[in-house]
Each structure stands twice: as structure tokens, then as C-alpha cells.
Simulated assay, not measured.
Amino acid sequence: MANKGVLAIGAVVIILLLVGGYFLFIGESVNVYMDGENITAQTTISPFSGVDTGKLNDEICELTFQNMNNTTGDAKSLKQGILRICLAHGLDNVKVHLNSPLGEDEIPILFHVEGTSMYPTLNDGQTVLVEKTKDIKVGNIVVADSDEYGNIIKRVSQIKGDQVYLTSDNTNVDYEYINGTRYETKGITTWVGINDIYGVVVQY
């Protein structure tokens, strides 16, 4: 009986050493998956850490959501923010992995088109997939945050330094009378800064 007890204690010690060794050499990790609209976070940490992983994952998802909806947010700043959250929970040796349908360290956003200014390329109510990036080229369709118009989806027509000229694909001009006065309506054209760009439309 004594030998069995010793064996049992030995087995427990070996298991603890194996578990501890795994996290010592492999490390703790956070895996975040984004599909453009939904976010999931999964943490792999030592069972002895005492960390509330549910709360940790919720904070990571909230930060990721904020990053997706911020024009200046990118994969680097998101990873740094996640590491700060982990450190606040007492985790200082965490590897962060970001994944999405666009690939590793790529952040997607689903954007819903409103209006007909991009017709016939895009239709009112259509959903498009946007890749968060500042690497834009003339001819790209981008989503931007305009001081004058709010969130808009337009085509890049010119790039001058850090300024980007956006135009509508729909070139039709309409007229309407309001209180006897004739008004011309046409698609938006506007300049925005490169930092006002959310990203490039990659699927529609």
C-alpha cells in the first residue's frame, strides 16, 4: 500500500512537472480570430495562474472591436494592446496570434453600402469585405472616415503625399426642386487624409 501511495504521488509530481514545463518552454498564448464582424479570443495559460480567462477574453474581444472601428488601428497596435491587457492580469510571457479569412495578422471589416453613389460597382445595401491597411493605390475602392460625410466608400482617384482624393463610380447627375429652387445632386468627391482610411475593399 505504501508503495502504491508513493507511486501515486510520483505520478502527480510528474504530471505537474510536465504541465509546468510545457508553459515554461512553449509559453502562454492568445489566439484571436476575426471574420470582419465576429471576434473570438482563446487564451492558453497555466492552470496555476489564477487568471479569470473569461474576463481576459472579453477584454481582448472589446479591444479588438475598438481597433477594427478605429482608422488608426492595425495589427501591431492591436497586439501591443492585447499584451498590455495580459500584463494587467499578471501574464508577462504571452504570444499573441491574430487570424482571419484574409490570413495571419490581417484585420478584416464588413462594411454595409448605403446609397447608390458607387453604382454599378456596388449596390445600396450590399456588404463588402474590407482589409485594414494604409497600403492603397489609385483605382482601389476604400472605406474612409470623412469629416464632412462620415463613413464613406469611394474609389481612390488621386494620391498626393498623405492626401487621398476619393470619387464616386456613379457619375449620373440628378436634379430636384425644393421650394421652387433647382438643386443638382451627384456623387460625393472629397479629399481625406491617409489616416482617415480604414482599408481597401477586397471582396464584394
Rank of each mutant, 00 (worst) to 15 (best):
Y183S: 06
T189I: 01
Q66I: 13
N179K: 09
P120L: 10
Y165H: 14
V164S: 00
V192G: 06
T171S: 13
V164G: 02
I141Y: 07
N70P: 02
Q42V: 13
H112D: 11
E148S: 14
E62F: 04
I107Q: 06
H97S: 13
T53C: 01
C86W: 01
I136L: 06
I14C: 05
K55Y: 01
S49H: 01
V12K: 04
T40D: 06
L78D: 02
G20N: 13
Y149S: 06
E59Y: 06
S146E: 11
G180P: 01
K79R: 14
M1N: 12
I45S: 04
N140V: 08
L102I: 11
D135M: 07
I85Y: 07
A11G: 06
C86R: 02
S29W: 03
L7V: 10
Q126W: 07
K55H: 01
G193V: 06
N70I: 04
N151W: 06
D174Y: 14
L98E: 00
G10D: 12
A8W: 02
I85S: 04
G199H: 07
E104A: 11
T167V: 15
T190Y: 08
N172S: 14
A8L: 15
G5P: 03
A88H: 07
I197Y: 03
K55G: 01
K55Q: 12
V130G: 09
I14W: 02
V96P: 04
D105N: 15
V19I: 15
L16I: 11
G81V: 07
T43C: 10
I107N: 03
K160I: 13
A11R: 08
Q42D: 05
N70H: 07
I178S: 05
W191A: 04
I178F: 02
E59F: 02
L129E: 10
V138K: 15
G187L: 11
Y177T: 14
I60N: 02
N57T: 07
T190N: 12
K154I: 12
R182Y: 00
I9N: 07
P108Y: 04
G27R: 00
K55V: 06
D162R: 14
C61I: 14
E106N: 11
K134Q: 13
T127E: 09
T72K: 14
D35K: 10
I109K: 14
N179R: 06
I153K: 01
E176Y: 15
A75P: 05
A8M: 07
D58K: 12
D35N: 15
L16M: 12
M118E: 13
I14S: 04
L16C: 09
T167S: 14
L91P: 00
D52S: 01
T133K: 03
L166S: 05
W191T: 13
S100H: 05
V19A: 10
C86T: 12
L56K: 00
C61R: 10
V156T: 04
R84A: 12
A75N: 00
D162Q: 12
K154F: 09
M118Q: 06
P47V: 08
G161R: 09
I26H: 09
L122K: 14
